[in-house]
Lab assay of single mutants.
Amino acid sequence: VTLFVASYDYEARTEDDLSFHKGEKFQILNSSEGDWWEARSLTTGETGYIPSNYVAPV
């Protein structure tokens, strides 16, 4: 399981994006799509795309 933590807050801009807060942890589901990764929030359980430059490895 690949875990990352949010370095910043992010507000979703499309329905496919995932909003999150600094400190929130994610399981990365797919990182092969470039700068936007499909992730599941371990806080909310929601799945969506997050900007990879807003998160760091745990």
Rank of each mutant, 00 (worst) to 15 (best):
D35N: 09
E15C: 14
E46F: 10
S52Q: 07
R40F: 08
S52V: 08
G23I: 00
V55K: 02
S31V: 11
N30V: 08
G34P: 14
R13I: 11
A6H: 00
A56M: 14
Y8K: 11
D17P: 01
T44I: 00
S41F: 02
F26Q: 01
A56L: 12
G45I: 01
V1D: 14
E46C: 14
D16T: 14
D9E: 06
E15F: 10
Y54S: 12
E33K: 13
V55I: 10
T44E: 00
V55R: 01
F26P: 00
Y54D: 03
D17S: 14
F20T: 03
F20E: 00
K22H: 06
T47Q: 09
V58S: 08
L42V: 08
Y8N: 08
K22A: 11
Y54W: 07
V58T: 07
G45R: 03
A39Q: 00
S19W: 03
G34Y: 09
E38G: 04
F4P: 04
N30A: 08
A56T: 15
D17N: 11
E46P: 00
Y54H: 08
Q27H: 11
S19E: 03
S32C: 13
H21D: 06
G34L: 11
F26T: 01
E33V: 10
K25G: 05
G48K: 01
L42Y: 06
D16I: 14
E33S: 13
Q27K: 07
K25R: 11
S52A: 13
A6F: 01
V5Y: 08
Y10D: 01
V1Y: 12
A12V: 00
A6Y: 01
Q27M: 12
Y8A: 13
R13T: 13
D9R: 02
I50F: 01
V58N: 06
V55T: 04
V1F: 13
S32M: 12
Y54K: 08
A56V: 15
E38F: 15
W37M: 06
Y10C: 05
F4Y: 15
T43M: 09
W36T: 06
L18G: 01
Y10I: 02
T47K: 09
L18V: 05
A12Y: 02
V5F: 06
N53Q: 11
T14S: 14
G23M: 03
L3V: 13
I50Y: 00
V55Q: 03
P51S: 05
G34R: 12
L18P: 00
G45N: 07
D9Q: 04
T2L: 14
L3M: 10
F4R: 04
Y54V: 06
Y49M: 14
S41R: 11
H21P: 05
E11V: 13
N30W: 07
A39L: 01
S41N: 12
R40N: 03
K22Y: 06
L3G: 04
E33A: 13
Y8V: 09
D35Y: 14
Y8Q: 12
T44M: 01
E38D: 04
H21T: 12
F26N: 00
P51T: 01
P51N: 09
A6V: 03
Y49L: 14
Y10N: 03
P51Y: 07
F26D: 01
H21R: 14
V55M: 09
W36Q: 06
Y10A: 01
I50C: 02
G48W: 03
S7C: 15
I50A: 01
E38Q: 13
V5Q: 09
A56W: 10
F20Y: 02
Y10M: 02
G23C: 05
T14G: 15
R13A: 11
D17G: 15
G23A: 02
K25Y: 15
A56D: 09
D17M: 14
L18A: 00
G48V: 03
R40Y: 09
D17W: 11
V58W: 10
E11F: 09
E46R: 14
S7D: 09
S32G: 10
S52I: 07
P57C: 07
S32H: 10
S41I: 06
F20A: 02
A12N: 05
S19N: 06
S41D: 02
G45L: 06
T44V: 01
S41A: 06
S32F: 09
L18W: 03
Y10H: 05
S19D: 04
T2E: 13
G34D: 12
T43W: 10
G48H: 03
L42D: 04
S19V: 02
S7N: 14
V55E: 03
E15G: 13
L18E: 00
E11W: 08
R40C: 08
S19G: 07
F20C: 00
W36M: 12
N30L: 06
R40V: 11
T2Y: 11
A6C: 07
P51Q: 05
V58F: 10
Q27G: 03
G34F: 09
D17I: 11
S19C: 06
G45K: 04
S32K: 10
G48E: 00
V1N: 14
Y10F: 09
T43L: 13
R40D: 00
S7M: 15
Y8L: 11
N53C: 14
L29K: 05
V5H: 04
T43N: 09
A12F: 03
E15A: 13
A39W: 00
L42F: 06
F4L: 06
E38L: 15
L42I: 09
S31R: 12
Y54F: 11
D35E: 12
E38I: 15
L42S: 03
E38S: 07
E15M: 11
H21V: 14
E24Y: 04
N53H: 12
N30G: 09
K25I: 15
L3D: 07
G34I: 10
Y10K: 01
A6T: 04
G23D: 05
E24A: 05
S32R: 10
T43I: 09
W36A: 05
T44Y: 02
N53E: 10
N53I: 09
T2M: 12
L3A: 07
A12S: 10
P57H: 06
E15R: 11
F4S: 04
R40S: 05
T47G: 03
S19R: 04
G48Y: 04
D35G: 11
D17C: 15
Y10S: 02
G23N: 05
G45H: 06
A12H: 05
S41H: 06
N30D: 12
S7Y: 13
F20V: 05
G23V: 00
D16M: 14
P57K: 08
E38H: 13
K22D: 03
E24P: 01
N30R: 08
I50Q: 00
P57T: 06
E24H: 06
T2F: 11
V1I: 12
F26Y: 01
S41T: 03
S19T: 09
A56G: 08
Y54P: 04
S31Y: 12
S19F: 02
A56H: 14
Q27V: 15
R13E: 11
G23L: 02
V55D: 03
L18Y: 04
G45M: 07
N53T: 10
D9W: 04
K25T: 12
L42M: 11
F26E: 00
V5D: 04
S41G: 02
R40T: 11
T43S: 11
S19K: 04
S7H: 13
D35L: 12
F26W: 02
Y49K: 14
V58P: 05
L29V: 08
G45V: 01
G45A: 04
T14R: 14
Y49Q: 08
H21S: 13
Y49H: 07
E11A: 10
V55F: 09
V55N: 02
N53F: 10
Q27D: 07
E38N: 07
E33W: 10
A6E: 04
Y10L: 02
L3H: 10
P57M: 09
S31W: 13
A6N: 02
E11M: 10
E15P: 13
T47N: 05
L3Q: 08
D9L: 01
V58R: 03
L3T: 08
V58M: 11
G48L: 03
T43Q: 08
F20L: 06
E38P: 05
V55W: 03
K22V: 10
F26M: 06
D9I: 02
N53S: 14
L29E: 04
G45P: 00
H21N: 10
D9M: 04
T14D: 11
S7A: 12
D17Y: 14
A56S: 13
S31H: 10
Y49S: 05
F4I: 05
T2Q: 13
G34K: 13
E46L: 14
E33M: 14
